[in-house]
Design a protein around this nucleic acid. Structure first.
Length: 895
RNA sequence: GCCGAGGUGGCGAAAUUGGCAGACGCACUAGACUUAGGAUCUAGCGUCGAAAGACGUGCGAGUUCGAGUCUCGCCCUCGGCACCA
């Protein structure tokens, strides 16, 4: 053992040993409980950033802990290797996307290996390889057969900056998930997967896993799916002046609205439809010219980039059409309104300004009547009776709508009922009378998966002039990407310019046909990748049902919360589809989810040009306030700089390359520090200074072992009678085992490191010279050191292996030894004499030392016997004495 | 605007869930060893105070023998959503 700890030497040695012994290669083993530890797969950009280090280290800690606890652990990694960056690199630098991707994978794998992450590399998958994307296509065909994949013309989300279509999830907030620019709409024919078919299941399936998923993710998924329960109501359309029913008859003369508040229907003042509503199209020629013009303008407005900063002002126009309220028979105007969305519900609403904020605003603006039909329970109770209440037809004077539930007024035979009851009854009434039904709508839309991109999995569909849309045959999969395609980034499908690719024969009639030239959204790849790890080379199926049945579902998943409504909804959807195909027998893919906070760094920009400035102590000078926040930043040549906190990466110039950190401080110190620096779910503002502390800690452990190793080489068994200081050390050891075990079980990674540091300090403070140590002393130090090292293994595996082999006196490490996590002994951890605080009137005044089992009366007597307490209590009335056994004594006095 | 999370030393944070606030670490201060210190060791380090002591977990109330923790009201910060009928 070297005098000093040289991380590089130790790390290279053990990484090599692990590879040679296949230490992390997991196979099905029915003699052990299985544990599937998964982290979100990286995009192979070629570079590692601190966010990766945090994510994969946390996963590695869990994987190691579970292995040491006797589980058969599957801990795989792969590559989300399809997608835009490879295509961008190809366009910008003329490289081949395949080569670029493969090279990056090699580079990035090396960086991950140097961190000593315990992955089973044999199982890695890469989305861009035909043996993987073949099964994206396999699934697509299955979904096509099941009626879950369909094509339709639609307005899609379009990012002008990236020249790319986006699913609703990827355009959340009206901004592109990748580049953050505003999203516009574009008309395209596009393939969809019917996620809405599973909307109820996607909501209801959250309940059983809720306790083990972060509340924020569960909530965002619920909101995203957005189930709301209400009713459809049909309003007949009349065309003035002669009350002509629309010529087509049938459904065309009805406007169907969706409402969650049918109980407010006597307060309807108008029907408001979206500009894209079919009625608006049907009566186009009937409308006055200014109405038609306005509708056209409103449609165009909706295609503009979405600006969520400024609130859109309500706008609309009376179409001149009339609609009849089926409950009251009242005739109402039909308006077109910009606040009604064609995509949600039926694209038409009944406007109730008295009880809906948006309708209220709309009515105010256009001077429409506002009628009150619901009163709060309090105001009804204070009024004498509902009958005698003079109906207030207008609440124009009020400045907001009353949106709560309450009691019905001005609502014919429903008056006086509670709105909660009326809501149910009125929907039933509407259904019985043929003008409505109870209904549930969702915010969730189907998943648009077509991408006009090259670097993705081709959609395995063929268009034949004779047979129409024909799915490719399973035996012809994969539909392989051609080696070369003209990549222009113009938003046209590159595959449409490769005749060798799209010219084909119809699988049904063998006639001339052409292939779909769009590729799939890359989120398809990541929807099922972790099932492929279980059976990575299966040539005929995505994975075998039996193999997956052993390993899946995932026991612990760790990744960023930025995927709360993208990846994590898609993969839940995919799992339910796989269940219906018969590949898996469960509903939810992930038992327990942990979302780690981002690692961010300070970024600087040139104030004038907006260009990034690399942040090194040499070129940026900052002044900071008391909280350490930057108040002012300048470059060394005097230019004013803007600053921001951004996700850390080398390309943003706000952070180190983890590889450099490993080079300087070692992988163990880097891992340890990242785990220790902040709770895993918090955002971590990167500050490199702290890593020195991790290095110091490991050096300290190393020196301690160096100091004791010769003495510990001699045999030592615990003596029957031991002295106080050895019992104290054993106590600390076992208390630490409990703390570390509990922390890791609850996925806390910062507090166990602190506990290990405390144990190290305790061993350090054990004031016995190793050469003169008794057998008993040697035994307690051995127990403390081996315990320390075993518990350190998940965080700093290389140095732990080295120290463990030193303590064992041979070259074997923990892996080779089948080492186990230390077991907690409650008896040994129990304190003998504890310091018990004594309070007088709730204020700490003294401490007494007693056995933790001391009886309440004894503690009380000891407290009163304490000189200081006696003095404070003297001459006063003791009102009460509170004794918490083993914890505290509080004496309440008066006078 | 609505929803969610949170506010504890100079900084990152602990606090067995109502029982010694600030563990552990970073930064800092003083000292020792040293040719040297960005190594190591020792001591200190919430605020005021010479000390005794007093005060102290965003602010204000409340419950309790006792509140960082529970209740109510307010302020602030950070995230999410974007007219979802």
């Amino acid at each position: 053992m070297d005098e000093k700890y040289f991380p590089k030497k130790v790390e290279q040695k053990w990484q090599k040993k692990w590879v040679e012994s296949g230490a992390f290669e997991a196979e099905i083993d029915d003699t052990k409980p299985k544990f599937y530890q998964l982290e979100m797969l990286p995009y192979p950009s070629g570079n590692l950033h601190m966010g990766h280090v945090r994510n994969y280290t946390a996963g590695d800690v869990v994987a190691w802990y579970k292995r040491l606890k006797g589980f058969n652990v599957l801990h795989p990694i792969g590559w989300d290797s399809f997608g835009q960056p490879a295509e961008d690199a190809a366009i910008k630098r003329g490289v081949n996307p395949r080569e670029w991707t493969e090279n990056n994978i090699v580079a990035m794998r090396g960086k991950l290996e140097r961190l000593g992450l315990s992955f089973d590399w044999r199982r890695q998958m890469a989305a861009h390889r035909p043996e993987y994307y073949k099964f994206d296509q396999w699934f697509f065909l299955k979904m096509y057969e099941m009626g879950l994949a369909y094509k339709k013309a639609t307005q899609v989300n379009w990012c002008e900056h990236d020249q790319a279509t986006l699913s609703n999830e990827q355009a959340s907030g009206g901004l592109c998930w990748r580049c953050g620019n505003s999203v516009t709409k574009k008309n395209l024919e596009q393939w969809f997967l019917k996620t809405t078919a599973y909307a109820d299941e996607l909501i209801d399936g959250l309940a059983p896993i809720e306790a083990d998923w972060p509340p924020a993710v569960v909530k965002r998924q619920r909101d995203w799916i957005g189930r709301s329960e209400g009713a459809y109501v049909d309003f007949a359309v009349r065309v003035p002046p002669s009350d002509v029913i629309a010529a087509d008859g049938g459904m065309q003369n009805l406007i169907r609205v969706f409402t969650t508040r049918i109980d407010t229907i006597y307060g309807v003042n108008a029907i408001v439809i979206a500009a894209e509503h079919p009625i608006a199209e049907e009566f186009k020629s009937w409308f006055a010219s200014e109405v038609a013009a306005k509708i056209g303008a409103m449609r165009a407005e909706k295609l503009k980039p979405t600006d969520y900063e400024t609130e859109v002002e309500k706008d609309g126009i009376d179409t001149g059409l009339k609609a009849v309220n089926p409950f009251s028979g009242e005739e109402l105007p039909v308006w077109v309104g910009n606040y009604v969305m064609m995509e949600y519900g039926t694209g038409a609403v009944m406007s109730v300004p008295g009880h809906d904020e948006r309708d209220f605003e709309f009515a105010k603006k256009f001077g429409l009547p506002i009628k009150k039909v619901i009163e709060s329970i309090e105001s009804v109770e204070s009024d004498e009776s509902i009958e005698s209440t003079n109906p207030r037809d207008s609440i124009d004077s009020q400045d907001s709508a009353f949106t709560d539930y309450g009691v019905m007024i001005n609502s014919a035979e429903w008056t006086g009922k509670s709105t909660v009851d009326a809501k149910k009854e009125m929907a039933v009434f509407a259904a019985e009378n043929g003008f409505g039904e109870t209904a549930v709508t969702y915010r969730l839309r189907d998943w648009g998966v077509s991408r006009q991109r090259f670097w993705g999995s081709p959609i395995p569909i063929i268009y034949c002039d004779k047979c129409g849309v024909v799915p490719e045959k399973y035996e012809n999969l994969p539909v392989a990407l051609p080696e070369n395609a003209p990549l222009t980034g113009t938003g046209e499908s590159p595959l449409a310019r490769v005749p060798e690719f799209f010219e084909t024969k119809c699988p049904t009639c063998d006639g001339p046909a052409h292939r779909e030239t769009d590729t799939m959204d890359t989120f398809i790849d990541s929807s099922w990748y972790f099932f492929r790890y279980t059976d990575p080379t299966n040539p005929v199926l995505p994975f075998s049902e039996d193999v997956a049945a052993y390993w899946t579902p995932v026991d612990q998943y760790i990744g960023g919360d930025d995927h709360a409504v993208m990846h994590l909804i898609y993969t839940r959807f995919w799992t339910k589809v796989m269940r219906d195909i018969g590949l898996v027998k469960f509903d939810e893919p992930v038992k327990r989810l942990l979302t780690q906070g981002m690692v961010v760094g300070e970024t600087f920009f040139d104030d004038e040009t907006g260009k990034r400035v690399y942040h090194t102590p040499e070129n940026v000078v900052t002044t900071r306030d008391a909280k350490g926040k930057i108040t002012d930043a300048k470059s060394t040549d005097g230019k004013l700089l803007k600053h921001a906190i951004e996700r850390m990466s080398k390309s943003k110039g706000n952070g180190v390359d983890p590889d450099e950190m490993v080079e300087i401080y070692g992988a163990d110190a880097a891992r340890l520090f990242v785990m220790f620096a902040a709770p895993i779910e918090h955002e971590l503002v990167w500050n490199e200074a702290g890593i020195e502390g991790a290095v110091r800690f490991l050096q300290r452990v190393w020196r301690l072992v160096g100091k004791w190793k010769d003495a510990l080489a001699q045999p030592a068994t615990p003596a029957g009678e031991s002295s106080e200081h050895t019992r104290a050390l054993r106590r600390k050891t076992h208390q630490t085992i409990k703390r570390v075990t509990d922390s890791l079980e609850s996925l806390q990674f910062n507090t166990p490191v602190a506990a290990l540091m405390e144990l190290t300090n305790a061993i350090s403070d054990f004031e016995v010279e190793p050469s003169g140590a008794s057998e008993d002393e040697r035994h307690s130090v051995r127990e403390a050191l081996t315990g320390l090292v075993l518990m350190l293994m998940p965080f700093a595996p290389h140095v732990a292996e080295e120290i463990y082999s030193v303590l064992l006196g041979n070259e074997e490490g923990m892996v080779a030894n089948g080492a186990r996590f230390p077991e907690f002994d409650a008896g040994l951890a129990k304190a003998e004499g504890v310091e018990i605080p004594v309070q007088v009137n709730g204020k700490l005044r003294s401490r007494i030392t007693a056995s933790p089992e001391a009886a309440n009366e004894d503690l009380e007597a000891m407290a009163f016997a304490d000189a200081k307490i006696a003095e404070l209590v003297a001459g006063k009335d003791v009102v009460k004495v509170v004794v918490v056994p083993g914890r505290l004594v509080n004496i309440v006095v008066r006078g």
